[in-house]
Simulated scan of single mutants.
Amino acid sequence: MGNRNWIPVRAAQGVHSRQAHADLPEGTYEREISKEGFFGPAAFIHHRRPPTGWTSFEGPLRPRAFDLARLNAAEPSPWAAGKVLYNAAVEVRFWKLAQAMPALARNADGDQLLFVHQGTGDLFCDYGRLAYGPGDYLYLPRGTMWRLAPAEPTAVLMIQATNTHFGLPDKGLLGGHALFDPAILETPALDDAFRAHQAQEGEFRVEIKKRGEVSVVTYPYNPLDAVGWHGELAPVRLNVKDIRPVASHRYHLPPSVHTTFLSDRFVVCTFTPRPFETDPGALKVPFFHNNDDFDEVLFYHAGDFFSRDHIEAGMMTFHPSGFTHGPHPKALKNMLVQPKPATDEYAVMIDTRDPLEVGEAAASVENPAYVDSWKTP
């Protein structure tokens, strides 16, 4: 995801560990400074005190948290859902839907990824029907016509890849079946439920979003009238419980190993339950780091996120690039010894190359005290 021509440096000073994220000098806290997120060259600095031990933090660079669960209004159209975060390459919205969409939707601005936070129901689209439930990623290629028909109230995190597409990461030495076997990806079916949907009569509206504006096309029949399809492009469903995370008992792996989807200017990662490191010298919490090349976003879906205090399901944190962050003070107590054998968390991370803007929807449910959560109690 960028220039690989680095200035070659191999140097060390003072007291330091021989291995990153393991066997730290006694009484020190490690901070990683790296390029290209966690993909490029890095330096590991050992501090006497936690690098997030600030007493105050002023200005727009501060870490921010939003309780998206408090966005209570259900909207019939995904394009009416408020923007949470956005830039020229990605658009993130949080959408609640109480009943079947009255119109079809079509995104002409880019590929769409729907992450189902709550609710069950059916997705009907050009290709057929997919049932959905909590923890499902629903990938929709650009231009797909679709609608959701909830069986129960539904909440969705929507991620748009503007003017481009989503792909899968190169799994390298792990092999193509690591993280999840592509065979697990489920495509829509032209089944009896879909044919019953096709049989509906009357006028059908299609709300098409292009360059942020919505146009409406009306048909005198249901335009989801396909009788068959084939090819190498289709919507797919992937549930977080089908993702098998990479783990190492001797080394705390960076979040980039949990990459699920790639786009040109951002990545989508998924945190799922995994065993803690058992090596006595290995870090057991996320390491302090400078996120200088990417803005970092985390949406908390379910469970107990072990490196953060006062975070509940449906909340989102936003760490702009340019400052050091890492585990909260409570998590630091477990830096080398974890009381539990494994994590219990499901979360979606979005790392963006370009700075993100905060939308009105997120600003209305912000927790301004989040920046103080790193202070030593």
Rank of each mutant, 00 (worst) to 15 (best):
R308I: 06
N291R: 14
F294D: 02
V216D: 04
D304Y: 02
D242G: 08
F318Q: 07
H289Q: 10
H310T: 10
H252N: 04
E232K: 05
F294G: 00
T272G: 07
V227C: 09
W229E: 03
M315Q: 12
E232Y: 14
P254M: 09
M315W: 03
H289D: 08
P254D: 08
L238A: 05
P255D: 09
V216A: 03
F318R: 05
R308E: 14
T278I: 02
H252G: 01
G303Y: 08
H230E: 04
Y251E: 06
E232N: 13
L283P: 03
L238R: 09
P223T: 06
G314H: 02
V285N: 05
E213A: 15
N290V: 10
N222H: 01
V216G: 00
N291L: 11
V267M: 14
T278S: 10
T259Q: 13
T278P: 08
D242S: 11
P245I: 05
H230S: 05
M315C: 13
S215G: 09
L233F: 02
A226C: 01
I243T: 08
P255Y: 00
P320F: 01
P223M: 11
A282C: 05
L283S: 12
M315K: 12
P223N: 06
H319E: 15
I243A: 06
D225N: 15
P235V: 05
D292H: 14
P245G: 06
P255A: 12
C269D: 12
G212F: 02
G228W: 07
F288D: 08
V257W: 09
V268F: 08
K241Q: 12
T218L: 01
R274F: 14
G314C: 12
G303N: 04
L283C: 10
H301V: 15
H249W: 04
Y219W: 06
C269S: 15
H249V: 14
F305C: 09
L283A: 10
L283K: 03
G281Y: 01
D242Y: 01
K284C: 10
Y300H: 15
R265H: 13
D304Q: 11
I311Y: 03
E277G: 13
D292C: 04
S256N: 10
F299Q: 10
G303D: 02
P280K: 06
D264Y: 08
A313F: 03
H289V: 03
E296K: 02
D264Q: 14
T272F: 00
H249F: 02
V285W: 09
L253V: 07
I243Q: 05
A226F: 14
T259C: 13
D242E: 11
R250Y: 07
F261I: 02
P275M: 10
A282F: 11
G212V: 05
S248D: 12
F299K: 07
T272Y: 00
R265M: 06
G231L: 08
S263I: 05
V297T: 13
F299H: 08
M315V: 01
G231M: 00
T270G: 00
D242V: 07
D304C: 02
L298E: 12
F276G: 06
E213P: 10
L233E: 14
F305D: 08
F261R: 03
F318L: 09
F276S: 05
P286R: 14
L298N: 01
T260M: 10
T260S: 15
V240Y: 12
V216R: 03
R250I: 11
C269R: 10
T259A: 13
E232A: 14
G314D: 04
V285G: 09
L283Y: 00
F299L: 06
S215C: 09
F294C: 03
